[in-house]
Simulated assay, not measured.
Amino acid sequence: MSGRQRNVKYTRPTTRNEDSGAVCGAWAPRPGSVTDTPTALVLLGRDAAIAAREYDFDADRLSDDAVHEVGTEDGRPLRLAVRPDGEGVLCSFADSCKYFDIDPKSSTKLKASDLELPLLQGIGIQNCIRFSEDGLLLATGGKDGHLRVFAWPTCELILDEPQAHRSIQDIDISMDSGFVASTGEDSGCRVWGIEKRESLAHLQPEKDEKFGCCRFSRDAKQAFLFVSITKGKRGYIGVWNMVDWSKVGAKKLANAPISSLAVARDGKSFALGTTDGDLIIILVTKMEATRLIGSAHSSRVTELEFSKKGRSLLSLGGDATARITRLQKSEWKEWQLYAVLIGMMLLSALLFLMFFESPKSDDFWKFPMGRAQPARPPPQAVWGHSSHQEL
Score class of each variant (00 low, 15 high):
8 V>E: 12
14 T>F: 10
17 N>Q: 04
20 S>C: 10
23 V>T: 10
25 G>F: 01
29 P>S: 14
31 P>V: 11
31 P>I: 14
33 S>C: 08
39 T>P: 00
45 G>T: 03
47 D>G: 06
50 I>P: 00
51 A>D: 08
56 D>V: 03
59 A>P: 02
61 R>T: 09
67 V>L: 07
67 V>S: 10
70 V>E: 15
71 G>Q: 09
89 V>W: 04
94 A>D: 12
95 D>F: 03
97 C>L: 15
99 Y>M: 13
105 K>S: 12
105 K>I: 08
107 S>K: 15
114 D>S: 07
115 L>Y: 01
117 L>T: 10
117 L>D: 00
118 P>A: 04
119 L>G: 01
119 L>M: 07
127 N>V: 03
135 G>I: 15
139 A>C: 15
143 K>E: 11
144 D>M: 00
146 H>N: 14
151 A>P: 05
160 D>Y: 04
161 E>K: 15
163 Q>R: 12
171 I>R: 07
176 D>W: 15
181 A>G: 03
187 S>W: 05
192 W>Q: 06
199 S>F: 08
219 D>G: 04
220 A>Y: 03
242 M>V: 12
249 G>L: 02
273 G>D: 11
277 G>S: 01
278 D>W: 13
280 I>F: 11
281 I>L: 08
281 I>C: 01
282 I>S: 01
282 I>E: 00
283 L>F: 13
291 R>S: 14
295 S>T: 12
297 H>N: 09
298 S>K: 13
300 R>I: 01
301 V>F: 02
316 L>F: 09
316 L>A: 01
318 G>W: 05
320 A>T: 11
323 R>A: 02
328 Q>E: 14
334 E>V: 00
343 G>I: 04
344 M>F: 11
344 M>P: 02
350 L>D: 00
351 L>H: 05
353 L>R: 00
355 F>D: 06
355 F>M: 06
362 D>R: 15
362 D>E: 15
364 F>A: 08
367 F>Q: 11
369 M>N: 10
371 R>S: 10
375 A>P: 02
376 R>I: 15
377 P>F: 14
381 A>D: 15
388 H>D: 14
